[in-house]
Simulated assay, not measured.
Amino acid sequence: MTREILVVDDEPDIRSLIVLHLEREGFRCRSAASGPDALREAAARPPALVVLDLMLPGLDGLEVCRRLRADAATAGVPIIMLTAKADEVDRVVGLEVGADDYVVKPFSPKELVARVRAVLRRARPAAGATPVLAAGPLTLDVARHTVTLHGRPLALTPKEFDLLRVLLEAAGRVLSREHLLNRVWGYARADEIESRTVDVHIRRLRAKLGDVGSRIATVKSVGYRFEEE
């Protein structure tokens, strides 16, 4: 089945360039030029992934991201945010509100297509993965891509789901930031901003897990470990 991408950017040339390269790679695309238009398009038919510019008229990309994550119909849709090179703070904030990845402008269309493929690939259950992972009141079903906490469904973004899965699969072992960046984001090496990406997602995941969140332990100068019971 051809996957549909929603491309959101207020600059027609950039929007057309992204659509052109994605369609060349076999994706189907819809586009929107403003924040409100993006929300309407996503609500009408949730896409497989959203490429979302940070600077938009009407509603900026951060607010669009927040609203997509708050809507049950689009909460699990992966989001790649486009940011200006100087906006490092905005990149971190974007990850905090639920973006799964970011691409810095000016960008290579080939890099963007590669990021889209990588995010979509990681959103699918891995072949041979343990079907269900559990830790006390927390249960993660790999095949169904669902998480429950104390018997209730827990809404996680695709990256939060992948991060939790990797931590649970290695429960009791310390995982470095570099390892997590490679397993969850597909980055071959870590720089300062990418290492902060892990920290932002860990902080957000702990908050969503409530009392279970304290079991994600920080190992100073190394990384993180999900504590076994």
Results as ranks from 00 to 15, higher is better:
residue 154 L to N: 04
residue 55 M to S: 11
residue 61 G to K: 02
residue 150 H to L: 07
residue 51 V to E: 01
residue 189 R to D: 05
residue 161 F to R: 04
residue 14 I to M: 14
residue 79 I to H: 02
residue 90 D to K: 05
residue 130 T to H: 03
residue 4 E to R: 15
residue 82 L to E: 02
residue 119 V to Y: 03
residue 26 G to Y: 09
residue 8 V to N: 01
residue 156 L to R: 00
residue 130 T to V: 15
residue 49 L to R: 00
residue 125 P to N: 06
residue 65 C to A: 13
residue 111 E to I: 15
residue 43 A to F: 09
residue 207 A to R: 15
residue 122 R to K: 14
residue 144 R to T: 00
residue 140 L to Q: 01
residue 21 H to I: 12
residue 23 E to G: 10
residue 226 F to Y: 14
residue 212 V to P: 01
residue 191 D to E: 12
residue 185 W to F: 15
residue 219 V to S: 02
residue 91 R to E: 05
residue 162 D to S: 14
residue 53 D to W: 06
residue 119 V to T: 04
residue 102 Y to D: 08
residue 97 V to L: 02
residue 33 A to V: 10
residue 130 T to E: 15
residue 52 L to F: 01
residue 179 H to S: 13
residue 221 S to T: 08
residue 86 A to G: 04
residue 40 R to K: 14
residue 202 I to G: 06
residue 44 A to S: 14
residue 23 E to M: 10
residue 165 R to K: 12
residue 206 R to K: 15
residue 181 L to Q: 06
residue 140 L to S: 03
residue 92 V to S: 03
residue 77 V to T: 11
residue 153 P to G: 10
residue 154 L to F: 06
residue 13 D to Y: 09
residue 27 F to G: 07
residue 42 A to H: 07
residue 83 T to K: 01
residue 47 P to A: 10
residue 53 D to S: 09
residue 38 A to G: 02
residue 197 T to S: 15
residue 216 I to A: 04
residue 153 P to C: 13
residue 189 R to S: 12
residue 182 N to Y: 13
residue 35 G to W: 09
residue 158 P to V: 08
residue 55 M to W: 10
residue 118 A to T: 05
residue 170 A to C: 08
residue 141 D to E: 14
residue 173 R to P: 04
residue 197 T to C: 13
residue 130 T to P: 00
residue 11 E to Y: 11
residue 192 E to M: 09
residue 41 E to V: 07
residue 133 L to Y: 08
residue 160 E to I: 00
residue 28 R to T: 12
residue 63 E to G: 03
residue 188 A to S: 13
residue 30 R to I: 10
residue 7 V to M: 06
residue 26 G to N: 06
residue 205 L to V: 01
residue 208 K to E: 06
residue 201 H to Y: 06
residue 154 L to T: 01
residue 213 G to D: 04
residue 128 G to Q: 05
residue 2 T to Q: 11
residue 76 G to D: 10
residue 210 G to N: 10
residue 171 A to K: 08
residue 10 D to K: 04
residue 73 A to N: 09
residue 151 G to F: 02
residue 43 A to R: 14
residue 71 D to S: 13
residue 15 R to Q: 15
residue 148 T to A: 13
residue 180 L to E: 07
residue 130 T to C: 08
residue 196 R to N: 07
residue 9 D to K: 00
residue 47 P to H: 05
residue 179 H to A: 15
residue 111 E to V: 15
residue 199 D to P: 06
residue 54 L to A: 07
residue 39 L to G: 06
residue 10 D to M: 12
residue 131 P to F: 14
residue 222 V to G: 01
residue 101 D to A: 13
residue 79 I to F: 05
residue 181 L to P: 00
residue 215 R to W: 14
residue 137 P to D: 12
residue 222 V to A: 11
residue 143 A to F: 03
residue 61 G to Q: 07
residue 137 P to E: 09
residue 68 L to C: 06
residue 10 D to C: 12
residue 54 L to Y: 07
residue 105 K to V: 08
residue 167 L to K: 02
